[in-house]
Design a binder for these strands. Structure first.
Lengths: 239, 239
DNA sequence: CGAACCCTTGAAATAAGTCAACCTACGTGG
DNA sequence: CCACGTAGGTTGACTTATTTCAAGGGTTCG
């Protein structure tokens, strides 16, 4: 499943064989993280970065009242904390929202990669920049979209991201999130998420039931969300 | 004023003379950008990155109704779009919120730097990662803090950032933002920003008048905002 | 079978938005 | 030097989106 990562990188810019090999060889063997486990804690010093192979991961911060804000979701093929390579201690927590397979790459090996493979380094850097672009789109959602558009936008984003890793079937996809977790992504309360999902259902745009997102009218959904996938940098058009 | 950038980088990790020289030499000579000018447009292909020497810059996205969300503010010593080096076309606009001096570094020269100076490259990468950390904190604000805490937090963040570049006097600082622009940062309406500022004033926490932020009670303000500067990575404690 | 968790819905409360008026400061041009 | 226009700040009254509180219903799993 490291192939997913390679495919993503190479969609941007092809790798030389030696770059590809160096990257693949740098990973430790995969391990399992149980659902619900907060496997990286804010402030904790890290010496490796984690690639998600399967499952779903969330990064979150919280306030003293206990309210959580999920700042990013990660799907298979995503680095969950490539930025910990330069930050060392993270400003947020990382939780497995479903059972996850992950593979770690020690920072010492990443450092070797940066020394020997500047082109590969730029592509890893690119990945963290795409991450930041998603944060910006979420800021726009949280700051300016209403509840319906916010949730619609999230469903569109996930569809676009999951599609390129082959995890979209019949226009729908598995999303192992509770409504409470959806609320933590969108800055809403669980109750309001529930009512908003009802609206989206009644408007025949999407249904979300039993961890399955069934998109009824993708175009309509995009329109409501004002979704434009450019910020995901999935196409190599502008390298 | 490139010294500010160097100081920031070296607060994290000292540079060798040749790294410092290579970086400094890569910049073109400074130019002026007029206040209010949107000097980088979403989607536009870029071939250089911009360092802010003086003034104030905002990065924003907007929705069709014309509502803007500012996703980041930049102060002197910040790269405004170092991420354009790998993204090439940006997902957001960049506006000068005050008259600004900027210095550009062409991407071709950045590419040379990455080839010859892996350690410097990691530090530039670090800068973009700090940028992303600020986005995450803003997501937390937009998603979970109420209006008072949101504005208080922004004032705390700017104080912390401006302090290390020597732009805080007597506990206060210049902030050339209108209330409308503040609203664009915080996801609020201008009217509500106005009322919220009044509250902060009445609670003797901060005053914001005539582009001057006068912090009356920094501790109280931090408390209201739940501000913890760790996410700014200003101290080298965890390298 | 029961417990835990999650989803659903209603009614009431509240934070923030909207609309509109008025005020102030500032700069420009007559 | 005043007159005017513009942009930004302030306030009030009213509306609305979202939250809160609370209760009830459905699933799943040990």
């Amino acid at each position: 499943m490291i192939e997913t990562l390679l495919a993503r990188i190479e969609a941007r810019d092809p790798l030389a064989d030696r770059e590809r090999d160096a990257l693949v060889d740098a990973f430790d063997s995969p391990t399992l993280v149980g659902s619900g486990r907060v496997f990286i804690r804010q402030g904790q010093r890290l010496d490796r970065s984690t690639l998600l192979l399967s499952g779903l991961v969330g990064r979150f911060k919280d306030l003293s009242r206990g309210e959580r804000q999920i700042s990013a979701l990660h799907i298979p093929g995503d680095f969950v904390d490539l930025h910990s390579f330069s930050l060392k201690a993270l400003d947020h927590n990382v939780v497995a929202l479903a059972p996850c397979m992950v593979a770690a790459i020690p920072h010492t090996r990443l450092e070797n990669l940066t020394r020997e493979h500047p082109h590969l380094t730029r592509l890893l850097w690119f990945l963290t920049n795409v991450d930041a672009a998603m944060h910006r789109e979420w800021e726009l959602s949280l700051g300016r979209r209403d509840a319906v558009a916010r949730i619609a936008h999230l469903f569109c984003e996930l569809r676009a991201r999951l599609e390129i890793v082959g995890l979209v079937d019949e226009g729908g996809y598995t999303l192992p999130l509770s409504q409470a977790a959806l609320a933590e992504c969108t800055g809403l309360t669980p109750v309001h998420v529930n009512r908003t999902l009802k609206q989206l259902r009644e408007r025949d745009l999407v249904e979300f039931r039993q961890k399955w997102v069934c998109i009824k009218d993708f175009q309509g959904l995009q329109q409501v969300a004002e979704f434009d996938p450019a910020y995901l940098y999935l196409r190599p058009e502008c390298q």
